[in-house]
Design a protein around this nucleic acid. Structure first.
Lengths: 232, 232
DNA sequence: TTTTATTTGACAGTTACTATCATTTTATAT
DNA sequence: ATATAAAATGATAGTAACTGTCAAATAAAA
């Protein structure tokens, strides 16, 4: 789970206006890009972009696995994916983003919103995580764990990953606030979100050390622990 | 609060054997450096190093304030501090470390350990933070808040800062485990530590948005909220 | 003073990124 | 099918954060 937010680059980014999800956008007078639902066809262009992106990611992950993260240069990735280094940075703002970028937040938001309103924030989160995860196709699930392990074991990536958490925490605070009828900026709302996110990270680290266990169970147990008031 | 651990550099570090605290070390047969208590005098060398380090940090923070973090290059810092860029990297492994490095963990550990054993983990933490902070000289306190604000408002630094939290979480897990007579590796122990650290970060962010408030109060309120079971 | 260890600066890499522009490739309109 | 517009790409040249090495300067020890 993360924000889908691209990690901030060393200097600065001005992300080109465009669609990252493959849905074609259309410019309207105000200059704001909105989804163009009148022409939902996925052209050759989009398909190629998706394939290119996937190719970059796959080759990068393979190289990371084979030679390590640091030892792998962007140039090597570009070469393996048969693109130019420039193109690499057009698809991923940073080298880290290759590992970190995913897009499960909308899914989580949806499953969270679908929880019955009588549940408390943490219980709703427990359910939402489980349901959301089950909706992810199995072959994708494997990739997630590989990435989680990679992220948690490479300090550099852990740094960047945890950054995304700033964004994810905001998102979680948002949905929690929505449910409780509070403001996302309130300290208490943020506290719950921060604790939940803390547990997610904690569970990930624990999972890396105990790969034979089931991540979902670890996380669920942690959240239950929180609900019980963190008894020791 | 952080680990005092230097953020991991882009490539790799082999930290030179030596003392970062200014206490002279002595080589013994095994090659292991141990504190040399027989000659506790602080030589000219150590004093000069401390002064150089302080000068780098002060000049860097000033430049960051004046022109922003990104816009300030290591070369500029080196020039302002009248050293060579090489020397900069001898004192700070990364540019980020100039902002992030501090050494309050031992203090926190001590005040935590001094808490009466009948207190639960969170209550002990609340007390320890307050007591520890009061022991920091006032002029130093100001610098801490300046750095906290800087860190939380520069995304890049926030990333790196949060990294340190990995280390800090381990430390907190350690002292919590010690108090509860558990193992630091246990999931439940880690959960408590993760939640507490989450609240610390949350409080820092909240503080940056509400600088007129008292950080200690924010954090204390958050921890109390946790003790109460995070009611919304 | 002589010797030894440590600190330092100069210099030459490497690599992650940025910015720009010409070229190619795809989409659209006729 | 063809002309034209728009988007994707690659080549190139830069910047800045580091790393590694070596020789000169400086402080400590004998």
């Amino acid at each position: 789970m993360n924000t889908g937010v691209v990690p901030l680059p060393k200097k600065k980014v001005h992300w080109r206006e465009g669609s990252s999800s493959g849905v074609p956008l259309k410019r309207v007078d105000g200059g704001i890009a909105v989804p163009d639902l009148t022409r939902p066809k996925v052209g050759l262009r989009e398909r190629k972009k998706i394939k290119t992106k996937a190719s970059i990611q796959q080759n990068a992950l393979r190289l990371f696995r084979e030679q390590g993260y640091q030892a792998t240069t962007v140039e090597q990735i570009a070469e393996a994916a048969e693109i130019s280094p420039s193109t690499f940075f057009r698809y991923f703002a940073t080298k880290e983003a290759v590992v970190l970028e995913d897009d499960y937040d909308p899914l989580l938001i949806e499953t969270y919103r679908n929880q019955p309103p009588e549940l408390d924030a943490v219980q709703a989160f427990r359910n939402a995580v489980r349901e959301g995860f089950l909706q992810i196709p199995e072959e994708e699930q494997g990739g997630i764990w590989e990435r989680v392990s990679l992220v948690m074991s490479v300090p550099e990536l852990r740094i960047a990953m945890i950054h995304q958490i700033a964004g994810t925490t905001e998102m979680v605070a948002g949905i929690i606030a929505e449910r409780a009828g509070r403001e996302a900026g309130e300290l208490k709302v943020r506290n719950v979100a921060a604790a939940v996110i803390g547990l997610v990270i904690s569970a990930q680290m624990y999972y890396v050390e105990h790969p034979e266990m089931d991540f979902l169970e670890i996380l669920d147990e942690s959240l239950a622990h929180m609900q019980a008031g963190f008894p020791l």
